[in-house]
Amino acid sequence: MDLDLRKLRYFVAVAEELHFGRAADRLHIAQPVLSRQIRALEDELGAQLFVRTKRSTEPTPAGRQLLDDARPLLAAADATRRRVTRAARGAKTFTIGFMPGLTVTDAVQAFRASHPGIEVELLRTTWDDQIDVLHDGRADVSIVRLPIDQAGLTVRPLFEEPRVAMLPAAHRLAGKPALDITDLADEHLLQDPDAVPEWRDIAVELRTRTARPVPVMRSVEEKLEHVAAGRGVAIIPLSVAAFYRRPDVVAIPVDNLGPNTVCLAWVATRRSRLLHEFAALATTADWTQRRTR
């Protein structure tokens, strides 16, 4: 029995929304149709995927396992479709993803000079999608900031840069020339604590880690708006702080905070000659062009 990708997409929508009505709206189909498709998928797999009551819809252990497997499978299918469509059109493009604060000019210009017949496209990414653009085929390579899930990827380090603490300009610590990570232990961190293990470990040790939720933020601009409003602090790479400089927030070095590692990544199963040629250029590129002041 072959898995039906359409039914998998329907399943993922229900598993993410945890509500058949909202999932049906998201998919632009009628709810009874969605329910029939999920039942058909359960029959094909021989497993119940959801426990459904009047008040809630929750995935079963089989449903949670299918969700873990379905997301990369659907991303790979999307990537295949994009690449086949591009090949059918005869388009000779090479797309490079890059994170905020990074200047990719040197590597891109070198690649364009050696491949004048290739159209190079640039795709700005975020913390949320910097590897998604690889798995779903939107980008051929991506210049990423660690940590990332490296499963299924080839990852090559490019350089490291310091990270700084972003504080409101009126913050009690804003006038200090440098901070110790313990200075921030009782602050509300506006990002996943696992992305700043130095803060996470100190906060746990001192029992000051806050249980307040972190707002959903999809850009550096949003994060800095929250900092400026006094809702918390953020740890970001120095080049990002320089690029998004503004008068109502300050960037302060943190002495015992590890650097951010910037890497080049691509899907490990791809064998494109262009990938490896760009990788060679990127590892020897002049990354001093990035803004650090």
Rank of each mutant, 00 (worst) to 15 (best):
I118T: 15
L67K: 13
L134K: 04
L146G: 03
A79C: 09
Q48C: 02
R82W: 01
G137D: 08
R71G: 00
T103C: 09
L123V: 12
A110S: 13
D140G: 03
S142W: 03
V108G: 01
R138H: 11
P116E: 09
A77Q: 09
V144Q: 03
V144S: 02
Q65Y: 07
P116N: 09
G46H: 11
S142D: 09
A87S: 10
D128S: 11
P147M: 06
A77K: 03
D78E: 15
G97E: 07
R112T: 05
R89H: 10
V120Y: 06
M99Y: 15
I131F: 08
D128R: 13
L73D: 05
A110H: 10
R55S: 13
G97D: 07
Q130C: 02
R112E: 15
G117F: 00
A75N: 13
D43H: 14
L74G: 05
R112S: 11
R138A: 10
D140C: 04
E44G: 06
V84A: 11
Q130I: 00
W127S: 10
Q48F: 00
A87I: 00
F50P: 07
K54C: 00
T85H: 08
A47W: 07
L123D: 13
V141I: 15
T103N: 14
V144D: 02
L134R: 03
G90H: 12
R55Q: 12
G46P: 10
R86G: 03
